[in-house]
Simulated assay, not measured.
Amino acid sequence: MLANLALHTAARHYCQEQSHYWYQHTTEIRQAIPRNQGNYQQMLLESYARSDVLTIICTELERLDPDHLDDIDTTRDLIVQIGKIAQKTPPHPNMGQPPPQISQATYGINVDDAITHERETFCTYIQDLSESQLQAVQPLPYQRVLSLVESRTLWQGLRNRWQIIGPYWHPLHPRSLSDITAFNTDAFEEFCESFSLIDRLSTHGITRIWELRDYGIEYEQDISLFDPAYTGYEGYWTSNHLDWIVYASHEDSTTVGGWLLEEIKEQWLDWDKHTW
């Protein structure tokens, strides 16, 4: 792994692991400390704020394309700068004012010291990583946050190909396309325990996919990260030819289209008993 990619990967590892640590710590606080204890709320919100800022830094790191990083010194300076200033950004334009910076205003309690500490610790970690440490960094699957321009272009192509109007699609907004079917999500997920969507896509030479949402962060991802699930936002997945699609809705439906649907029906003998 090239040194600049190893540095970017190490930064992602750090943010993911430390964010998870602090998120788990909030659970421990809830379980171990009485709610009426004077510093309960302060401790809880500081822990959450630490997790939150690390998640935000990771998202900003993933706006960088790991396939096109600058030299190691420039990459290190850029990552440190992200650690110092990364803030929440609006998921979509024209959705109101940007959210406030992570601070006392966000939580109602002063968590600035905790946030500052996490930023400084991250930056020190990045600045101190040695060549030997970089050589030992374990790879992570490719994941890059899509730019607004990319998102708009992809959505336009997806809408044209699959007749998507608004945030919802078939079966919530029924389409008359012959190559789509909506399944009950629980049944579909049970079927996928024995039918690997990732393996099937890989067989067709697909190595990266797009994950698009009606609201929130969108990605270009390594195929190994493909997980078509509703997360609070409608989700759409496809790849560069737009010749297959999966849509997960808030109504416990999973819609599949294109050649992927044909292959699913070949293997799922009683699929017609599990349509939405």
Results as ranks from 00 to 15, higher is better:
31 Q>P: 01
226 F>Q: 03
169 W>K: 00
119 R>T: 02
123 C>P: 02
198 I>N: 06
135 Q>P: 02
15 C>Q: 04
153 T>E: 12
46 E>V: 12
102 I>T: 13
80 V>K: 13
208 R>A: 00
116 T>D: 06
267 Q>A: 15
270 D>M: 09
263 E>K: 12
1 M>K: 06
127 Q>L: 13
207 T>S: 14
264 I>G: 10
23 Y>Q: 09
5 L>E: 03
124 T>I: 07
216 G>M: 08
189 E>Y: 14
203 T>Y: 11
35 R>A: 14
72 I>E: 08
184 N>Y: 09
156 Q>M: 06
6 A>S: 14
11 A>H: 07
51 S>L: 08
264 I>A: 02
1 M>R: 12
156 Q>I: 03
137 V>A: 10
92 H>A: 08
78 L>D: 06
243 D>H: 05
52 D>F: 11
200 R>S: 05
118 E>M: 12
90 P>R: 02
271 W>C: 09
266 E>L: 09
137 V>W: 09
149 V>Y: 03
231 T>K: 07
132 S>H: 15
12 R>S: 06
102 I>V: 13
272 D>R: 15
165 I>C: 07
69 L>H: 06
56 I>H: 00
145 V>N: 11
261 L>H: 00
155 W>T: 02
236 Y>L: 07
139 P>F: 10
48 Y>K: 05
113 D>K: 12
14 Y>W: 15
118 E>F: 11
77 D>S: 14
6 A>T: 04
225 L>G: 07
17 E>D: 02
63 R>S: 07
221 Q>M: 14
228 P>Y: 04
67 D>H: 13
135 Q>L: 15
28 E>I: 04
198 I>L: 10
36 N>T: 07
34 P>C: 00
178 S>V: 09
172 L>S: 01
163 Q>M: 03
221 Q>W: 05
108 G>V: 07
9 T>G: 12
126 I>W: 06
178 S>M: 03
12 R>F: 00
254 T>I: 09
80 V>N: 08
135 Q>S: 14
222 D>T: 04
57 I>K: 06
73 D>I: 01
39 N>A: 12
8 H>A: 05
120 E>P: 03
200 R>E: 14
103 S>Y: 06
229 A>G: 02
137 V>M: 13
36 N>A: 05
80 V>C: 15
265 K>V: 05
173 H>A: 11
210 W>H: 10
19 S>G: 15
49 A>L: 08
114 A>L: 00
227 D>A: 14
176 S>D: 13
269 L>K: 14
207 T>H: 03
270 D>A: 05
147 S>I: 05
177 L>R: 09
83 G>L: 06
3 A>C: 03
260 L>Y: 05
136 A>P: 06
76 R>P: 02
171 P>F: 11
30 R>Y: 03
258 G>A: 04
275 T>F: 02
180 I>R: 08
251 E>S: 15
56 I>G: 02
233 Y>Q: 14
104 Q>E: 15
173 H>Q: 11
38 G>V: 14
74 T>H: 07
171 P>R: 13
120 E>Y: 03
8 H>T: 05
107 Y>I: 04
255 T>R: 05
248 A>C: 12
198 I>T: 11
97 Q>Y: 12
228 P>I: 09
95 M>V: 10
146 L>T: 02
111 V>T: 11
53 V>H: 01
250 H>E: 10
217 I>D: 10
123 C>F: 07
114 A>F: 01
185 T>S: 15
86 A>D: 04
65 D>N: 14
17 E>R: 08
